[in-house]
């Protein structure tokens, strides 16, 4: 059973100079339920756009998106949020700084329900928040009443992670969620990520810049370049992959790109 199916997704936009950029070119992708998929690619390869399209914050120009078999292409982002959890790269983006930790989590507990006039922080919800924070084992349950603004970047990402997975989403999108953290925090966030994903048996699509992470996490690796999927390995092939090998493949692509660009620039100079 597939958790996510993308059929021929294309997306283009205008860059600063008014040129059309093909961010995604006819992407076809299926992600099996319960799998942990790593997505790598250089800046501008289209991976962030792909996440935006899946989460619903951007509409693709063409193509269809299915989550657990349901066509969600026309669902607005906040509606799709009922089944897609998301952790951003920027630790400030996933939480509301001036609300307390428990208020943020209560918000996540409301996910998929109507925003009605019931109390958000009922005793039951508060207890569940306390227990889930305590289960993380980093002492956040003692700071439930503090504003998220008082937390470090790593702690914020952990709260965001908990918010994103509160109701066991069909798909969890991790958008370089440790890239903005110091190494120790990144490690902590990653290990808690692994734990939550394993405990809940979540389906994950994780974008990363780190070849180390790409090799050590997940059972399937996808590489994107210029809006296309250029590498898709899993199983033993993925297990055998070495960081250095991926780096060199990466660099090859880049060299090709530089070549393309320099030729294009030459042509422009000559003929325009």
């Amino acid at each position: 059973m597939t958790a996510l199916t993308l059929q021929s997704i294309s997306k283009s936009y205008e860059d600063g100079d008014g040129r059309q950029v093909q961010a995604l070119q006819h992407i076809d992708l299926e992600i099996a339920r319960g799998s942990f998929v790593i997505l790598v690619g250089s800046n501008g390869s289209g991976k962030t756009t792909l996440l935006h399209v899946i989460a619903g914050s951007e509409r693709p120009d063409t193509g269809r998106i299915f989550l657990e078999g349901e066509d969600v292409g026309t669902l607005a982002e906040h509606r799709r949020a009922a089944s897609v959890g998301r952790v951003f790269q920027d630790p400030f983006r996933g939480t509301v700084a001036e609300m307390t930790i428990e208020e943020n989590l209560a918000l996540a507990a409301c996910r998929g329900r109507r925003s009605d006039l019931g109390f958000a922080l009922s005793a039951r919800v508060r207890k569940e928040i306390h227990d889930r924070l305590a289960a993380l084992g980093i002492g956040l349950e003692q700071r439930m009443h503090q504003r998220v603004a008082t937390l470090s970047g790593g702690q914020r990402q952990i709260v965001t992670m908990l918010m994103a997975t509160w109701h066991r989403p069909h798909l969890l999108l991790l958008d370089e969620h440790t890239a903005a953290l110091d190494p120790r925090s990144a490690e902590l966030v990653l290990s808690l990520t692994g734990r939550i994903v394993a405990e809940d048996g979540l389906t994950v699509l994780m974008v990363t810049h780190s070849m180390q992470q790409a090799v050590h996490f997940g059972e399937r690796l996808i590489m994107m370049h210029r809006g296309k999927i250029t590498l898709d390995i899993s199983g033993t092939e993925k297990l055998r992959a070495q960081p250095a090998e991926l780096e060199s493949y990466f660099e090859e692509l880049h060299r090709a790109e530089l070549l393309d660009d320099s030729v294009a620039a030459l042509l422009r100079e000559q003929y325009i």
């Binding site: 998301r86 400030f92 939480t95 409301c110 998929g112 965001t160």
Partner: peptide, 12 residues
Amino acid sequence: GNPSAARAVGAN
């Protein structure tokens, strides 16, 4: 306070 966070948890 943070529209992107609100949207991400399903608030309209």
